[in-house]
Design a protein around this nucleic acid. Structure first.
Lengths: 335, 335
DNA sequence: ATATTATTTTAACGCGCGTAAAGAAAATCT
DNA sequence: AGATTTTCTTTACGCGCGTTAAAATAATAT
């Protein structure tokens, strides 16, 4: 930087100012710097810069599982939001393990991020680790909530979205059974069950919840094996199955196909299957999957802008914010 | 660190040595440090550490598109390999854009990575940017090759893998047509076409290549719309379609289902469809997809270990290495 | 116990930049 | 033109640690 100051004819402190914020120097000097920049190709050393700054422009983005296209997609939107706001996103996947989530936060700590956008595991997350971390760094949660922690939460209104699809299913055929995992990792699953029970009550139908065993993140496999078993044994009380999420539904469709059960809402169909999330693959299943689309873009943008506001004002939120977006019904061929 | 030196009774330079490599200090001192560490919870500042080191422990991992579960999966394996070797992986997705790929490399430059694992776009990548970057930082390519660039390439032997599935398809029914995109972004697609032509020749069958239009990364959509059109118009010369990759095949299956065409190898099936890559979802399609499994784990590990070797010895490879792993046939129900 | 070797301590410099203070220069105002 | 304000230059210190060289100490060998 000293050398660059010499050749550009600008003093080092002024250059320092320029690199912190080009707008903070007079236009004539700015132009001089930018001219020299094209000729000498100098760039500040990130590590030296961040060493003395109390706040970096790094934003940690922590997702539970990048192998899930849902998170890959929402992660991408969050990254783009960061970039366009002038921050540097650092993407981290917890690879399906809450321990890794805690480790990721620890690793982030040393990168001195200005803030963190976290899609936590939820109930399985280590509350204390998240709480401790969020005391030091502003954190905005999205997708899954951890009650009472961090600055804000942005997600989908499961009560609205589930009611929407339950209403549709009841109106267009037999009322739905709910198919889900026995001990869901995700708090949204619990919300959706409550919403299902509530909604069925409101429409005056009897609720039927089917909970199956299964560990880990192989939702499709669980949906296929356990859903297939229930189908084979004829256990579902109605011909309509609402799956707690699309990945289970994808497995269920696979099982139905293998059993020779025709799925759909047309003539000759023996089963209706619906999901939730509008998973990127749900439009390519056979038949294509009727589901609820979450507003990925809105969630990602709101989470990001909430964090940026906190960073800009430099002060934490007085009260924790919760923002829920509506889901929308995506009618396809499976129900 | 000064303070920690005071309370732990160890001099600062010795502590510095310890944090660089705990094995480099006498066992008795190591124990003293580790004892103090449990009590005072000190950790070196990453930025200050990396400022003076010419080489950090950062490994850049650049993938073309995280929304593709294939890359998400191989990226995960690469990350784990880095972590277990004591490096810090930094994952970056190019979001389907070669320009972003170049930007990612630029961004990485400032993080002074010890090395980079790059799954490039291939022909669409900016050769010069990659070449320039790889002069400064050791880069190992994987999945897609860029001829002659970087230290090494690790991927799948498309000639072996395609021959394997062509041979199987020819043996078990009508010889396959090839279904692919007209201007594939990926060099593997070109290799696969050559391999298909070669293999069909060897088995004494006439080759039929169907190339369709389509832009971007929506392979499933292209497979469905264009594949559906070809099916509807009855253009395929045989009843067996080998898709250039699983994502096209997933679209093709969706199209066949919508057209009421029964896919499979059993009685009553009118069409066989096969893919390539063993995409995470290919086992849940209807019917499940017969395909070629790439040895993700081997590719990821070899790419990583090749890079680590270069870093350990501190010298670039004399000759560029190319390692190709065999694919294996995964027989499911679609062909 | 003495000589030899392996480690650690002390002291000091440097990395590349942020930042603060004081004076100089340029731009703007009266 | 002189007074005032804005911006820049000069000077100097500090961030948290790597690294080196010489001196001191501890461990091992003779």
């Amino acid at each position: 930087m000293e050398e660059f100051a010499a050749v550009s004819g600008i003093s080092r402190p002024t250059l320092s100012k320029y690199f912190n914020d080009p707008e903070s120097v007079r236009q004539s000097t700015r132009e001089k710097v930018e001219l020299a920049l094209t000729q000498y190709d100098y760039r500040p050393n990130v590590f030296a810069v961040n060493q003395n700054r109390r706040t970096t422009r790094n934003i940690g983005v922590v997702l539970p599982n990048l192998s899930d296209p849902f998170f890959a997609e929402i992660g991408r939107k969050v990254e783009l939001a960061c970039i366009s706001a002038g921050y540097s996103p650092i993407l981290m996947s917890s690879h399906g393990s809450p321990e890794q989530e805690s480790r990721n936060l620890e690793a982030l700590r040393s990168l001195k991020p200005a803030g963190v956008l976290l899609a936590p595991f939820g109930r399985v997350s280590d509350r204390r680790d998240i709480e401790k971390f969020s005391q030091d760094v502003p954190v905005v949660l999205f997708d899954a909530n951890v009650e009472g922690l961090c600055e804000a939460f942005v997600g989908t209104d499961n009560f609205q979205s589930v009611d929407l699809i339950v209403e549709y299913l009841c109106r267009s055929g037999q009322p739905p059974c709910l198919f889900e995992m026995k001990s869901p990792l995700n708090p949204n699953a619990n919300k959706r069950r409550q919403a299902y029970l509530e909604s069925m009550g409101q429409h005056g139908f009897e609720a039927h919840v089917y909970q199956v065993d299964g560990e880990g993140w192989g939702f499709e496999e669980i949906g296929r094996s356990e859903g297939g078993r229930l189908l084979y044994e004829g256990r579902f009380k109605t011909d309509t199955i609402l799956c707690s999420n699309d990945r289970l539904a994808i497995g269920m469709l696979s099982a139905a196909y293998n059993l020779g059960i025709r799925v759909g809402h047309g003539d000759g169909a023996a089963l209706r299957v619906a999901g939730h999330d509008d998973h990127p693959f749900s439009r390519f299943t056979s038949p294509s999957l009727t589901t609820i689309a979450q507003d990925y873009a809105a969630i990602a943008n709101r989470a990001a802008s909430t964090l940026f506001n906190i960073l800009d004002t430099g002060e934490r939120l007085k009260t924790r914010e919760e923002t829920l977006f509506d889901g929308s019904l995506v009618m396809r061929n499976s129900a």
